[in-house]
């Protein structure tokens, strides 16, 4: 193993702000901000200088309280929102030499359809509720250039079976599905083009415990079998402890601590991380 192997995803100084900023908050004296909000002009600095790497076959956890910028980070990485600055590089795209945020819309679509899969907290964001389960998967396959209906159907059925959706329900719309089933269809859809990178945004939030457990088992199983890299956002440290090899902790749009997951949980260094671990794990 070389420690200098190219990461699957490398994020460098990613910034996202809502508002144009003013002389007060643009100056180096960011301490005038209240958390990540400028009281003078109302600009919110949702992500500030976010830098991290994800390596092959690794699960990276992102934790933090509500409003810390976790989901914004995920949305920026999946092009749901434009970034205000910074870059991200994916080894599977132009050999990691191109800043994906600076690419054209067409190229961004290509990256979304071939290189990344995302599972949203709210299935309404990730699924078309009036398409059938298998239709949702076909949509992603078509977007990636597939046109053979028979092959797409076989692939879709295989994926749905893999995520434990009964084949006889494949042609039902997700509106009829339970929360856990919807998440599983989202996972199948995200995996449909064999992406090397999977983004999971609070996938177990709002699900009851046994369903949470089955979704987590499924994620772990898929990650093991396909050896893909995963970024998993959660405010539940139990989820992170179970899944992640390494973890980054976010507060007010910044990464305040990152390291091995067991080290973050057992020997947190930052005041906020200690507070978070105490509050959530006791």
């Amino acid at each position: 193993m070389s420690d200098f192997e190219q990461p699957v995803l490398s994020v460098s100084l990613l910034n996202k702000q809502y508002g144009n900023g003013c002389a007060s908050c643009r100056s180096s004296r960011r301490d005038r901000l209240i958390k990540n909000y400028c009281p003078v002009c109302g600009t919110v600095y949702a992500c500030r200088d976010i830098t991290f790497e994800v390596h092959a076959g690794e699960i990276l956890g992102v934790v933090g309280e509500s409003g810390s910028g976790k989901s914004t980070l995920m949305q920026c990485l999946y092009f749901d929102q434009d970034v205000s600055g910074g870059g991200a590089y994916i080894s599977a795209y132009k050999n990691g030499q191109a800043n994906i945020f600076a690419e054209s819309s067409q190229q961004k679509r290509y990256i979304r359809n071939h290189i990344m899969g995302k599972v949203y907290q709210n299935p309404v964001m990730g699924l078309k509720m009036d398409f059938t389960a298998i239709g949702n998967i076909a949509e992603k396959l078509i977007a990636a250039g597939n046109r053979n209906v028979g092959r797409m159907e076989a692939r879709g059925m295989g994926l749905l079976e893999h995520v434990n959706i009964p084949v006889y329900r494949a042609k039902e719309v997700p509106k009829n599905f339970s929360g856990g089933m919807r998440q599983r269809v989202q996972i199948a859809k995200a995996l449909s083009n064999n992406p090397p990178l999977l983004l999971l945004d609070e996938v177990t939030t709002g699900l009851d415990l046994p369903v949470q457990a089955s979704v987590l088992d499924l994620i772990k199983k898929i990650q093991r079998e396909r050896d893909i890299s995963v970024v998993v956002v959660s405010h539940d440290l139990g989820v992170i402890r179970m899944l992640a090899d390494r973890t980054v902790v976010m507060l007010d749009g910044r990464i305040i601590e990152q390291g091995l997951t067991d080290q973050i949980l057992e020997d947190p260094q930052h005041n906020y991380t200690q507070h978070l671990v105490q509050a959530l794990l006791g």
């Binding site: 390291g259 091995l260 067991d262 080290q263 057992e266 020997d267 260094q269």
Partner: peptide, 9 residues
């Protein structure tokens, strides 16, 4: 032991 295993820094 935890320092050796790097659970503690």
């Amino acid at each position: 032991l935890k320092c050796v295993y790097r659970t503690y820094a």
